[in-house]
Structure formats: C-alpha cells, structure tokens
Nucleic acid binder design. Sequence first.
DNA 1: GAGTTTGAAACT
DNA 2: CAGTTTCAAACTC
Length: 609
Amino acid sequence: MDTPEKSETQIGTPVSKLKVEDSPVFSYICNLSPIKTIKPIPITCPLSSLNFASPPSVFTSPHAVSHKESRFRSQKDVSASKEVGEEEALVGSEPEQSYKNDCNTPRVTNDVKDNGCGKDLQVMMDNVKKKSDTPDWETLIAATTELIYGSPRESEAFSCLLKKTSNSEARLRGSITATSVAVTNTDVVNNESESVDALSILHRGVRRRCLDFEVKGKNQQTLGESSSSCVVPSIGLHLNTIAMSSKDKNVANEYSFSGNIKVGVQSSLTPVLHSQHDIVRENESGKDSGQIIEVVPKSLASVDLTPISPKKKRRKSEQSGEGDSSCKRCNCKKSKCLKLYCECFAAGFYCIEPCSCINCFNKPIHKDVVLATRKQIESRNPLAFAPKVIRNSDSIIEVGEDASKTPASARHKRGCNCKKSNCLKKYCECYQGGVGCSINCRCEGCKNAFGRKDGSLFEQDEENETSGTPGTKKTQQNVELFKPAAPPSTPIPFRQPLAQLPISSNNRLLPPQSHFHHGAIGSSSSGIYNIRKPDMSLLSHSRIETITEDIDDMSENLIHSPITTLSPNSKRVSLSHLDSPESTPWRRNGGGRNLIRSFPTFPSLTPHH
DNA sequence: GAGTTTGAAACT
DNA sequence: CAGTTTCAAACTC
C-alpha cells in the first residue's frame, strides 16, 4: 500500500507485454555491461583472475564498502538494476556481518568473471532478442551463466545446479510466467521480484561462491556455500553434500542445505521485496549481528550439530573431499581466535559452531574487536591476511576447463621455513597449499612433492641449492617428485615443480588488467593493496571508476618499483620475485595474462566464492 | 584420545 | 634482526 515506488516501477510495464527485453533477467544482464564500458581498460579480465582472497566483510577495510550509500537510490533504480540493488541491499542489511563460510570456497575462487563480457554480452543479448518472441528461460539462463562464468565448465556446473533444482526452476519459471497474468501491479512486483530474485540468487550464488565472505553479509556467503557444492569440487562442506542430496522443495530450500543458506536467501529477498524503508530499518536492526548468527547455527543444527571433536571434524571435512582449507575450523585455546594462529581468523572467517575454540572472540558479536585486532596485525604486516598461496590466473582457467590440468604456477607468498619436515608434511605451508617451494622459502632439505624451492628438480643443477639437501638424493627426490605421494587430504592435484612452472614474467608488460594482478596479491585491506574483487561485481559506475583509478595508481607504483615487501619481522612477503624475470628464468612464460589469484591453502577452491 | 612434533606467529 | 616463546595444527602412537 505504502509502496508507491514499487507501483511506479511497475506501472508502464504491462505484464502481458513482457518480453525478454523487459524481463528482470534481461535488465540484470544489461546492468552488467557498464562494468566494461566505464573504462577503456579491460579490467574485466583481471577480475576473473584476481584473487581477492580478501577476508570476509568483517575483515575488510571500511572503504571497501563505500558504495553502500547507493542503496538509498530510488526504488526505480533498484528495480531497474535489480542485481546491483539487491547486492547493495544485502550489504546494507547485514553490515559488517560475515559468517564463516563453512564451505568455503573462499577466496579462492573468484568468480566474478567478466571476461571481456562486452562482446559476449552483446552476442548473448542478440541471441536473446532473437528469441524474444518465445522467451526461453533456459537459454537465457544458460547464456547468462556462461557469460558470468566465462567458462563452459563453470557454466556447466551451474547448469548442473539448475538441473538439480529443476523443480525450483520450474517454480521460478512458473512464477515468472505468473507475473504475466498477475491481477495487480503489486502482485506483479512481488512475484516478479521474487522470481527474478531467485534467479539472481542462483546466479549470484554460484558466481560469487568465492566472494561471499568478502561481501558484507552472510547472504552471499551462504549462497556461495550452496552453489559451490556443485561448481567447485573442492569446495562445499558436508553441509552442501547433505543439501544437494536433499530433495529441493523450493528455491529457498534449494539453498537451505544449511541454515545459513536458508537465511541467506531470505535475507537476500528481503531488500527487494520490502520497501526501502524496510531495508533501512533492517539494516539498523541488523546491527546485532550476533543475533543473526545465532539463527544460522540453529538451522545447521538439524544437519550437523552432533558434537565432534576438532580432529574428527577436520578429518570429516577432509574426507568429504573439501580439503583442509575449504573449511576452517579452529581449536584455539589461548589465542582467543584473534591471532593468526587461529586458522579461522587468519583465513578471514568468523569462528562458528564447528569450531572448538575456547574463549573465542572471533565472532560477529565481537566484530569491533576483530577489526581492531585485524588492523593491528595488518599494521605489522600488511599482507598478513593476504592469501598465503598465489597462483597464476591462467592456470585457474585451465583448471576450470579441465580439472586434471595443473595450475601453471603457484607459490606460497612468503615461503616456508621448514627444518625437519622436508616440506613433505602439512606442517609445511607450501605443501599444505599444494604448491611447490620457491626461492622465497628458507626450508632445509626441501623435498616438496609439488616442487622444490631451488627448482633444480629436473633441469637445474643443485649447486645453487642452499637448503642443504644432499645432492646425492637428487635422483631419488626427482623420482619422488614424479610420483608424489598424494598429499593427505589435499585435493589439489599434483602440480609441476614450481621451478618449472611457467609463470608469466611479463607482469610489467601486462595489459591494463594486469593491474589487478598486483592488486590481487595485495588483497590486504591496508595500504595500497586495497582491491577487493568481490566488490567489483557490485560496484556502481562511479565506484568502479574510483577503484580503477586506484588500481592504475597502484599498478603504476608496483610496476616501477621493485616489490619486495618485508614484513615487520623481516620475513619475506615478496611480490617482486614474481615480476623479476631475471631472478627466476624458469618462471618465464610467454603467456599473455599473468594474473595471480590465490586459493585457500587447503582446498583449492578454486576459487569463490 | 593423549601426547608429540612441527613451524608459523608473536614476542623480546 | 636474530633469538626465543607461544601457539595450534599436524602427526604419531
């Protein structure tokens, strides 16, 4: 009744005349285009490969969400650009609220793939128009999905999800169709909004599976969980498995594998279905994030509430194929989960029910403390929360096309310092991350199955080896490398020895999108490393421009100066080594894009979202 | 499940 | 910046 804005939005759009062009999905697609047109610089590609493994919202810097205010724009705009509006609303509805992504895909995935979608988008839109007379939602969805993912594989994965939710889809379509016969504009608005929203959620959920935690609000995160189960093998908690196995009742249920998901969907819809006033009110009321978080576990309880010891939990998660890193579950006792000792905190997650931590402060209700602590840590080491493992984005794409392929390159950002484990156990962060050791490592007796630090595995002489690894073991080691013992609970496929991994050395020559590359490395919220991929998908034009400019400036600095960042403790947090062709000839790669993205140390999410 | 080992993080 | 301590995960039994 008192939502004149909604009526206004719908009036003038006779339902009976709804065409694809008029459909919300179409509008949604159209709203994507600005991303490309804003700047000549093809920033879209970088997005796909960037790994904004940035931490969850609560861990992000305030500026990262500066676009919040835009949510107060007119309802008309919201309706016109539902996707964006919804995102913003979501962000606003649960400010600073981040939920541990049980499933994880965290940061690694990234997914806002806007791979030069300008042309693709145009083509897709043309195709859609051709079928405007007889809107084929499946085709539209497929096209949209592929466009979003930029990868047939991911698109396929999404299709998989849709198939699994065929019933839901039918409902969606039915609902959309229903809008054409809606009796009142209000009904149309609600139905359509809901239907489209559901579609948007489906898409967004998958597309941003790795970005969730970076986006304010649990919605995205929970959605990411759900979607990830289908898209990324390495992601998705047992909850997802359970969820996928369950019969979907409706869209909401579809994403209610866990309570998180369910809540997320509801929340996601809320901003759209309610007036802005409601949204604002909800935002305000949402301040008590703790309250919200309490709700989530309840739902989860029905699926996974059985008390499990930390070890069992971890093993359970590993056995489920999610990898150790996909789901952070700590067991901290003294750190209050406010130090990097805590895997959850370090990974940018809030601790949640599965954790067995004691006196945990890493919870939404203590977000202030968490943020303060995070800042403190970042002041000490700007890259403290950056992904521990970075890899060439091209490799990600390859992986996306064929899971059997190995990433072109990957390495631990700081390198390990193993002394006794020979980098053959998960004590070694490189090994744990499924990557080979690099020159950044100070390990001794490196036998990393993913590649030894000196890169002498196959080609180089061990003369230069400083690790102390007996040269007499070379042969044996090489053999081991060729037949690496499957990393325990590490789903990451065997990779070529880092030393041989072709890493683009032309970072400096990278096209504009390469800027993101650098930004991705420094995903930390501090200093110049303030780029968060997730937000890019939600950005308004102005926001994108701002970020683009920042990136340009940043890249300028990065490109023209040796980048060897020393953390306060002198540990190497080197970025330059990736860009120094001369230092690592074996890293050369004629490849064009040399985007680096990170993936969870544990499981490779591969990436997101 | 308890105890040990390990190496990162934190501290001095 | 190096050495030491603390911490929690990884590992072993």
